[in-house]
């Protein structure tokens, strides 16, 4: 009578350990160390309930939760896992496996410009003609900005590798010097650069990616 219950008891405890603390499960030895693992279970239960209480560090509530990266469509939260076709879709991890990583953990985590330049991706310029090549315009526009931020160097080259002139001109940017008022607030709200940057091109998470030009004043300062 006693032993089957003990067996079930022990199986339950081990199953619980395997599910919750995989590392602890390896330490679970039969009979002799059972008491020890049980004690561990009890102590480990304490922080678990504390997290579930959701009142830990309430002052930190605006910190962004670092999301898990590149989950398959069935787990990404926007696809319906009950849809049978969802499982047929390619997973991001599969597609990104050979692509260069970007610096900083944001966006897709892929350095798309590098991937294109190193021919890791072959983005067609024309949907019907795989041989069509983009017309690249290699002209950088330097924009001086207010305040102490370094100026912005806008490289036409990387943009014309992927885009047509008509994508930006004249609807988003008037092709004339001094004609465009740009502010970070507008960008954050999805205007000007923010039409793409912050939506699908690299997000405005690392200032220096765009603000990469030293101020003329700073250039005159003695070198450190």
């Amino acid at each position: 009578m006693n032993s089957p219950f003990k067996l079930i008891h022990f199986t339950l405890v081990s199953a619980l350990l395997v599910a919750s603390w995989g590392t602890l499960a390896t330490a679970a030895q039969p009979a002799k160390e059972k008491a020890v693992t049980e004690a561990k279970t009890e102590t480990a239960a304490q922080p678990q309930t504390a997290i579930a209480g959701s009142e830990v560090n309430p002052f930190n509530r605006l910190m962004r939760v670092v999301p898990k990266r590149h989950l398959p469509p069935t787990q990404d939260g926007i696809h319906d896992p009950t849809n049978d076709s969802t499982q047929m879709l390619q997973t991001p991890l599969e597609a990104f496996s050979g692509l260069p990583k970007s610096q900083g953990d944001f966006g897709n985590g892929v350095d798309w410009v590098k991937a294109l330049n190193e021919s890791k991706i072959d983005a067609r310029w024309d949907r019907n003609d795989p041989k069509a090549k983009p017309v690249i315009m290699d002209l950088s526009i330097v924009r001086e900005v207010k305040g102490s931020m370094p100026g912005v160097g806008f490289p036409h080259k990387q943009h014309t590798q992927l885009l047509d002139c008509s994508n930006c001109h004249p609807a988003i940017f008037i092709p004339q010097k001094g004609a465009n008022q740009i502010s970070m607030a507008a960008i954050m709200l999805g205007q000007k650069c923010g039409v793409c940057h912050g939506t699908v091109a690299f997000p405005v998470a690392e200032c220096r990616r765009c603000h990469d030009k030293a101020k003329p004043v700073a250039a005159k300062a003695p070198a450190k």
């Binding site: 849809n83 879709l89 897709n108 798309w112 991706i121 310029w125 024309d126 992927l162 885009l163």
Partner: peptide
């Protein structure tokens, strides 16, 4: 119907932005 999902990353691996957003 379920909403349609457009995976941008999948398409940008294969096509320039210009193909969809200009052509």
């Amino acid at each position: 119907m379920r909403p349609a999902v457009f995976p941008h990353w999948f398409h940008r691996v294969r096509y320039s932005c210009k193909v969809c957003h200009a052509d």
